[in-house]
């Protein structure tokens, strides 16, 4: 197995083009598990940990641009205020050791339907920046997932960064696991209220072949909030609205039975956590009237 260790982004892209069978590795929290258990035997590994600048984050056009090498621990420690939904998701991932190594970009590249970052990224309308020797392109994260553990990445492309616009309203993330920590999600839900554009963002994890949004739930809730003037009044959210929102989120799921849970449970649990996440987000919104929209 070749071990490629580029030190610049240009070298990394050249290596990616020259070794199409190479598997990119950053934190290694997925790749090394695959290798250790004999499930992954790539011709070569493309180590991105020495690429200058990849571990940096900054702001660009009003968005936070997370370099592909930024760890979950840094998202939690440094970006909890700017990317609250993603930070909440990052808190639920693995153990402290895993959070120190694992990266958001790695979660995207693996593209497991159970990846914890996905619901938060979907709800926040994140963009993925991918690059190759041919150039750089950006796509909404919802277009990134193309199938079970499949992505829109071309064979010669690497994930360069993820861009997330800091929210104009509250965000929530909630994940079901059958243990109180260090657990793969049975179902997960991300929610972002976007008062600035009178919109709602959602993301569902572990309940469909890919992470996905719940468009009908988003439209329903945005419509209810707008028609009842709740964006402006910040009045109490009718219970029936929250319940209906939960049902619509659950209806967007297409889960399976597996060792972690039944499809029926996943649908049920999604309806509950979506409803609860909305009530928490709405309570935050009501309690923060100083924040102009």
């Amino acid at each position: 197995m070749d071990f490629l260790r580029p030190t610049t982004w240009a070298e990394a892209l050249e290596a990616r083009a020259a070794f199409p069978g190479a598997v990119a590795i950053a934190g290694g929290t997925d790749v090394m598990v695959g290798i250790n258990f004999g499930r992954l035997r790539p011709a070569s590994l493309l180590d991105l940990t020495r690429v200058a600048g990849l571990q940096e984050w900054g702001t660009e056009d009003g968005a936070v641009r997370l370099g592909a090498g930024v760890s979950y621990a840094r998202v939690i420690g440094e970006l909890g205020d700017r990317l609250p939904g993603l930070a909440m998701a990052a808190r639920t991932i693995g153990s402290p050791q895993i959070r120190n190594r694992g990266t958001v970009a790695g979660n995207l590249a693996t593209a497991s339907p159970a990846g914890d970052a996905h619901p938060a990224l979907l709800a926040a309308d994140a963009e993925v920046e991918v690059a190759s020797v041919r150039g750089t392109r950006r796509m909404p994260v919802r277009d990134f997932y193309t199938g079970v553990k499949r992505t829109a990445l071309a064979p010669d492309e690497l994930i360069a960064a993820v861009s997330v616009v800091p929210p104009s309203g509250p965000q929530q993330f909630s994940k079901i696991g059958t243990r109180n920590a260090m657990v793969v999600s049975v179902a997960a839900f991300g929610l972002a209220l976007h008062p600035d554009r009178r919109a709602v963002g959602t993301g569902i994890g572990s309940a469909a072949p890919t992470p996905r949004r719940a468009p009908a739930a988003e439209e329903f809730l945005a419509g209810e909030l707008t028609s009842a003037g709740l964006w402006e009044s910040r009045a109490e959210l009718p219970e029936a609205t929250a319940a209906r929102f939960g049902e619509l989120v659950a209806a967007a799921a297409a889960p399976i039975d597996d060792v972690r849970g039944t499809a029926r449970y996943r649908v049920h649990a999604l309806s509950v956590i979506a409803r609860r996440a909305l009530t928490w987000a709405w309570a935050d919104y009501r309690n923060d009237p100083a924040k102009e929209i």
Binding site: I176, G177, N180, S185
Partner: peptide, 16 residues
Amino acid sequence: LRDMPGGVSNTTHGEG
């Protein structure tokens, strides 16, 4: 959250 069922996965703030 660490005292709640579900822990830091943020599934309940006391509901249910």
